[in-house]
Design a protein around this nucleic acid. Sequence first.
RNA 1: GCGCCUGUAGCUCAGCUGGAUAGAGCGUUGGUUUCCGGUACCAAAGGCCGCAGGUUCAAAUCCUGCCAGGCGCACCA
Length: 564
Amino acid sequence: MKERLEKLIAAAARDLFSIDTSTKLTRPDENFGDYATNVALQIAPQLEKTPREIADQLQLKLTETLAEYCNNITIAGPGFINIKLKDSALWDQAKAEFARTASGQKIVIEYSDPNPFKILHAGHLYTSVVGDAVANLLDSTGAAVHRVNFSGDVGLHVAKTIWAILFYESDGKLDSDIAWQKVQSLADKPLEEKSNWLSGYYIKGNAAYVDDQNKAKDSINDFNQKIYKIFEVNDHNSSLAQIYWTCRGWSYGYFDKFYERIGSHFEKYYPESGTIELGLKTVREHIGDVFKESDGAVVFNGEDHGLHTRVFITSQGLPTYETKDIGLLIEKWQDYHFNRSIVITANEQAQYMAVVLKAIEQFAPELAKASQHITHGSIRLQGNVKMGSRLGNIIRATEVLDSVNEANTALNGKKDDRVVLGAVKYAFLKQRLGGDIIFDPAESVSLEGNSGPYLQYAYVRAASMLSKTESDTLPADNLQADERKLLLKIGEFQEVQGRAVNELLPHHVCTYLYELAQTFNQFYEGNRVIGNDREAIRVQLVRCYARTLKTGLELLGIPVIDKM
RNA sequence: GCGCCUGUAGCUCAGCUGGAUAGAGCGUUGGUUUCCGGUACCAAAGGCCGCAGGUUCAAAUCCUGCCAGGCGCACCA
């Protein structure tokens, strides 16, 4: 509807003044109209007329050409043209489906990216929720969306953890047989406990590495190579390898359980270990033309492109994250032949990723061009304090869910995981991507006001009403003011979804859904539906509203509830 | 030091492809229930939109400088 009107207005301007405009319609204050355009103000200078004169001429013309959709076109202020839609146009708009703008396209979206052997913290919860919402948005455009997950199953953090297990379980002797016995003895423990056990050793290993206790640094670097070696020779038998594979399995098992709890689903996991060979091969092939050797390492000279210079292969001959990311992108390409590849991470990776993509651009420009990196802020504690495992103030992902569960149970006397998820996801998504999120376990996730449960409750009300009626008549004209206001708001959804997709910003959907639910709650207060003599029309309206709210909540990955 | 991001009400944030009186939630104060589910609704108080210039008929929005905070800058991920 909006695009149609914009085209008609552009056509009118062309007819009247032989001028091309690219003016967009906006949603003005409800007192002015349903749509507004400032086209008269914009073209006035070049036509050397007053905006008011132009607006007058346009008003006459548009009253004619927009007659099918609009019944009132007025001029206000310095020359704004305000348009009021017919009720029938409002109904059409409210019932429209999403435009399938990316139908036939393949999109690979990678997000969440947890590290085995390390803690799954609040930041992982946040990035997962964001990724789900962005993927859902893309899905709504008709594209085939493939959700994948990249996880660091090799690398220094793994060496730190394994080293610490060996060191502390065998009294500093680094005896893998003794450590393996310990690992086996934990077999029957719950996944959560195993995961905590591992992340505890990561913290110890990291501390030892940083402080270089007991010459730990060299020793850990040595273990790093040993772990890469496990993959090189496909070792599943040595006690070190058994410790590695067993603990790795615990981590992945724990991730699966977590994703199930929050409703995330990945089509494929790409472990870093699987990207090494392809990454190394690719980088080595391009030593000379893209990469160069420097101090025994292989680097990409980002400074030539206004970026940082980064190491791709260390002087030990090991691939860094950079090289793994190259292998990963090529592997994704081989798997999917995507039109678009999107990676979501925290802000701190932004400039790093720019270097990797610039390097790829040198030898595979089409891959780099199809790739997009979007980033978000991190979770910070009250008082703008950063979380960090070494600071001992990490909030586990499950702690966030548990604390909200506690608050919700206290509020209404019973536990409901759907409401907890609604509250947490909405709290994270309602903020524009990019900035940090200040998280206070006690207060940040609200259950009232602008919150997930508010939306869920606003749906419950409508669902409850609809269960009490059989009414199924067609919509009618001559809407009353409150009815019209609600229908107008419902009709805004397509525009909001379009904008959220274009900008890959889910918070637009949150903002809109909250306004929509607010409009509905206001309508609900003042207008009886069931048993009213306008029941037929109002039931149609409520159906339309409920459908819109449900679709919106689904885009955000928030559970839709009939009764709560 | 260089680069990127951020600065809007007491707090947490929308608004930033320039437009009409700068919005919401929480918190504070005061109201609303014979009636479809009160996790609701209504109202009040609360703003040099970080500061200073510039562009424009029009700037929270665009440009420049400064101040404050965050992130990144070679063998971690």
